[in-house]
Design a protein around this nucleic acid. Structure first.
Lengths: 340, 340
DNA sequence: TTGAAAGCGCTAACAT
DNA sequence: ATGTTAGCGCTTTCAA
């Protein structure tokens, strides 16, 4: 696109103020001291003309950036949009603008998007990678500063901020067991995604025999079909534990379709807590991830690196809370009284 | 932030390929014809070094931008995040990256964010303004190309893409009336926001006497309090129609708190359709806004302007669908049989 | 304290 | 077909 209405440059400001461009720059950046008279003249001119420094040109010359990039699998997932939202807020406080990019959960798109984002020479990147093979999508020699969040890449060489998936999933499994659910079906998109893998491992570690996993994929129609088939065939599990937001959403609707009532016919729990889970009846028991904390921590780590922090990669794991709600409060099997 | 690991420049590529920088540029931009041998050598060097053109420097010299900005009141609102998500997707298809900024629904923040986004000299801006006074927050002389979406600014001089608020709200009012709801309370954040104003006008035009409006503000605690007070005092309305997502969410929870059951005690309808409204029991009747279409249209309009389109401001209004669900299906007042 | 001039990475004229 | 050079808007020496 051609720029037709060329905005005011520092040169115009300098002319109007009757000083050199260097002086304007000095006033705006407060590096060298400038006489009050000149400073005032410059500020006037800046105000009158509505001048704003061209950040690209500034970076080009000074090497100082004020742009960061964030790459997420998807922006419609409330978990990711909350992440970006928080990030945008804290980045701004540190004087950074944010280039936001999503990749539709596709590795190829991610690679292309990473490339295009690199063309802006951002000071750093925060990435929620769509799969483990992130490093393959970066230039071999010296990529930009990156902090990885949420999903764990195969390459341990990145700074990382994620949650205690296994711990939280295990705790949920224990809760289900304590409620008397003996058989539990665990459903998630795919074990290729580290989160899902870790969560499944966490469940399996706690309850090694009475649980089964079904991988439903990423595509809504496929999830629905696979899960439905699984629930129809074979013995019905006591409880269903879904490991990611999309699967949860579809599973919840599916149970209604199949007229399986919660929690009487089946217990229902989710990894990832969203608004609607508190609104439905009964409300849904869920693992609540500290998304905002994750964004804060990721940004803080990136800032540390940008400030020159040079140590080994840091791996941070945040712990999750479990919100126990009606969907896993099992009615007692042997009704002695109505007291249950 | 200082850039320490300086990425490869076109100069390095040129050296490696044994050609001039101009030739590298020509190969990459395909302007002038380059001999196959040289072209191949250049491409090799580019691949080996993982070179990506510096977009800022390129723009600086050529005047061609590939950056656009989007300003929204908030990213956690699913309506806005869907808007940004769609925008990001279509912009990418046209080769643009997106600078995303939210302003927390505050005019002051919006002004500051507009300023900082301008420093990147984007090819254009898409803005969902937080109130009507958008023009006051732009530089007097010649602001960047802007397309306004969703909320209507006081100044009619902008390109605009929004929805038929009054029409849709009126249709919902008719639906409520047809269902036999005689008195209706309408709740929204504030009439300062054009959407809320237009929606209320739409309702009032259809049902001039049996409806009342309550402005609840933008702050969750305040919304809860005002709405609760309003529902407790005076006669209880037959139906509640909420005009924006936040109000809807709080109102829905409030009804549960007050043990007002839907739709028996009160009908409930929302402007703005979100996922959970289909999941709760009964599902919530809602006006569904074509958010994705809005994003598409806004981007298309911006592209037209960027391509040099010069006519008068265009105002586009998209129509909404009404999703009638259980929350407004009133049980008949005079039960003849159980058939109702 | 101020300004002149160089140069960041790139592309568009222009020269060869 | 290729290279040389100038200059986009800015900041940073460095000289005055």
């Amino acid at each position: 696109m051609l720029d037709r209405t060329s905005p005011v440059s520092i040169k115009i400001v300098a002319e109007r103020a009757g000083v050199s461009t260097a002086t304007v720059s000095n006033v705006l950046n407060g590096k060298t001291s400038v006489s009050p008279v000149f400073a005032e003249r410059v500020r006037r001119a800046v105000d009158d003309l509505g001048y704003v420094t061209d950040s690209s040109a500034s970076r080009l010359r000074s090497g100082r950036h004020s742009l960061a990039g964030v790459v997420v699998p998807n922006l419609t997932n409330p978990m990711f949009s909350a992440f970006v939202s928080t990030l945008e807020c804290v980045a701004r406080q540190d004087g950074f603008d944010l280039l936001v990019v999503s990749c539709d959960n596709e590795a190829e798109q991610e690679a292309e998007r990473l490339r295009s984002i690199r063309s802006w020479r951002p000071a750093g990147l925060i990435v929620i990678p769509c799969d483990g093979a992130l490093s393959a999508r970066l230039p071999k020699g010296g990529h930009p500063r990156i902090v990885v969040a949420d999903r764990i890449p195969d390459d341990a060489g990145f700074d990382l901020v994620a949650v205690e998936n296994a711990l939280a999933a295990g705790a949920m499994a224990s809760h289900l067991a304590a409620q008397g659910y003996r058989t539990c079906l665990v459903a998630g998109s795919t074990l290729e995604i580290s989160n899902v893998r870790e969560r499944w491992d966490g469940v399996a570690a706690v309850a090694p025999e009475s649980v089964h996993m079904v991988e439903c994929g990423l595509d809504p129609a496929g999830i629905h079909r696979r899960l439905r088939d699984r629930l129809r065939q074979g013995p019905r599990p006591d409880a269903l534990f879904t490991l990611d937001h999309v699967t949860t959403l579809i599973a919840y609707q599916l149970l209604a379709e199949l007229e399986i009532s919660i929690p009487d016919d089946m217990g229902f729990a989710s990894f990832d807590d969203t608004e609607w889970m508190r609104l439905v009846t009964p409300p849904v028991t869920a693992v609540r991830q500290p998304v905002e904390d994750m964004a804060h921590a990721a940004w803080a780590q990136l800032m540390r690196r940008m400030a020159g922090g040079d140590g080994a990669p840091e791996h941070l794991r945040l712990s999750c809370a479990i919100e126990i709600r009606g969907s896993t409060l099992r009615p007692k099997r042997e009704p002695k009284n109505a007291a249950a």
